[in-house]
């Protein structure tokens, strides 16, 4: 949870820096973090992962954490539920998981904004961020393999 929180904070801060120079469509790598956590975390650990990631995102976006945590939880749960289906796509699995995570996050954010009236940012950069997943597939697989060997 703490690692995911710190990774999400750092990536979100770098995204803010990128947006300041490149405009609002600079890809947001959060979708990739969602995909990695959804595919590789145990289902029992998803709740704490969602708290860490959602809270971190809320800190950088200066928005209420509740909406981000619930949207992250929904996205992680959906990716985790589809883990077997996604794994069948081999190298594409991370990209598909990132896309699914981004869609789920955006949908949950939209619904929560309607219900709560509070901002829960999830726009085009999140979907653009899913396109970064192919570049991360190799390193993620290597890390996951070494983690499995250590276990």
């Amino acid at each position: 949870m703490i690692l995911l929180l710190l990774v999400t904070i750092v990536l979100a801060q770098l995204h803010v820096l990128g947006t300041a120079w490149g405009g609002p469509l600079v890809p947001d790598p959060f979708a990739c973090v969602l995909a990695v956590a959804g595919l590789h975390r145990k289902p029992s650990g998803l709740l704490l992962a969602a708290v860490g990631m959602g809270w971190a995102r809320a800190l950088v976006f200066a928005e209420p954490a509740g909406g981000h945590v619930l949207a992250t939880l929904f996205a992680l749960w959906l990716v985790s539920e589809q883990r077997e289906t996604l794994d069948k796509h081999g190298a594409l699995s991370l990209t598909l998981a990132a896309g699914l995570g981004a869609c789920a996050y955006a949908l949950a954010a939209f619904v929560l904004r309607l219900i709560g009236g509070e901002p829960v940012s999830a726009g085009l950069p999140l979907f653009a961020g899913a396109l970064l997943a192919p570049f991360l597939a190799g390193p993620v697989r290597a890390v996951s393999r070494s983690a499995r060997r250590r276990a």
Partner: peptide, 18 residues
């Protein structure tokens, strides 16, 4: 775990409720 889940969801709703 279920109790933790309920606490987290309740806290999230309270946060959204302001």
């Amino acid at each position: 775990g279920r109790a933790l889940g309920v606490i987290v969801v309740a806290a999230c709703l309270a946060s959204l409720g302001g």
